[in-house]
Each structure stands twice: as structure tokens, then as C-alpha cells.
Simulated assay, not measured.
Amino acid sequence: MKVLVFYINSFAYEPQVKNVETAPDPGLGQEINNAILAFIQVEEEDEERDLKSREKKLVNHLKWTARKNNTKRIILHSFAHLSESKASFDFTVDLFNASQSRLENAEYEVFQTPFGYFLDLKIDAPGASLARIWASL
């Protein structure tokens, strides 16, 4: 799994083009402020491991990043451009949902961008030391 994390002052998205036939209705776009924005590429090899172990690894990384940036808000965004390897749509959704549940149980406010859609994005990210972190988990 590859993760590129940004601390953002503000982030907005608007669903545009459906690119996965089975994707559910995306709903309306949204704007979120003062949060960690995680671009996450779940890889094929992640499916060979236990879902819980992948969830724990991702959540621990996101919580650490959120603490370093003094926020309790996290945005999970599936981003299939950090690696050539891609996990299945269903596994990625399951991992995101499990991670969201674990983070919410730890009193984080969690958002997910819609799966299966190309989105228009607006990102305002400061140039602070720990505002951008890449990891291979």
C-alpha cells in the first residue's frame, strides 16, 4: 500500500465522471477544512495479507500524521496512481470502511471521497515540514 498524505487548510471535490460501472451514486461534492488528506493506493499484494493487519498499519500511520499536524479530521481518497499494482475495488472499499470505523472509534472525524469516480479537486496545502508525507506500508 502506498500513501501520500497532505495536511490541508481546505479540500473540495466534485464528482465528475463515473469510471467503475458498479460504483454507487456519489452524492454531492464537499468541502473539508483543517484535515489530513490521504491519497491511498491499495495494492494487489495487500489482498494476500490479512485485512485487519492492513487496516491497523494504515490507521496507525494516519493517526501519527494527524497528531503531527494537530488535527482530528482525516480524508480517505482512493488514488490509483502511486503504484502499478492495484487491489480489487471491493477489497479497497472494505479496507477504507474498516479504517474509517477504527478511526471514528478513536474519536477522529473521517470522510471518504466517492469510489469509482473521477473528481474535480481543489487543494490548499501549506508548505510546512510535516504537511506532506509519503509512505509505503
Rank of each mutant, 00 (worst) to 15 (best):
V20R: 14
V20D: 12
E21R: 12
T22A: 13
P24T: 04
P24W: 02
P24Q: 09
P26H: 07
P26N: 03
G27R: 07
L28V: 04
L28S: 10
Q30G: 00
E31R: 12
E31I: 12
E31H: 00
E31N: 11
I32N: 03
N33Y: 11
N33E: 14
N33P: 01
N33R: 14
N33G: 05
N34M: 03
A35E: 03
A35P: 01
A35H: 08
I36A: 02
I36P: 01
I36E: 03
L37C: 06
A38I: 05
A38K: 06
F39R: 03
F39P: 02
I40F: 12
I40N: 01
I40K: 02
E43S: 10
E44H: 14
E44C: 06
E45F: 13
E45S: 09
E45K: 10
E45T: 08
E45G: 00
D46N: 14
E47D: 13
E47S: 07
E48M: 14
R49F: 13
R49V: 05
D50H: 09
D50I: 12
L51C: 06
K52N: 13
K52S: 13
K52M: 09
S53I: 13
S53V: 14
S53E: 15
S53T: 10
R54K: 12
R54E: 11
E55Y: 01
K56G: 01
K56D: 10
K56E: 10
L58W: 06
V59P: 01
V59G: 00
N60G: 03
N60H: 09
L62Q: 04
L62V: 07
K63A: 03
W64K: 15
T65H: 01
A66N: 02
R67S: 05
N69F: 08
N69Q: 02
N70Y: 09
N70V: 05
T71P: 01
K72H: 11
K72M: 09
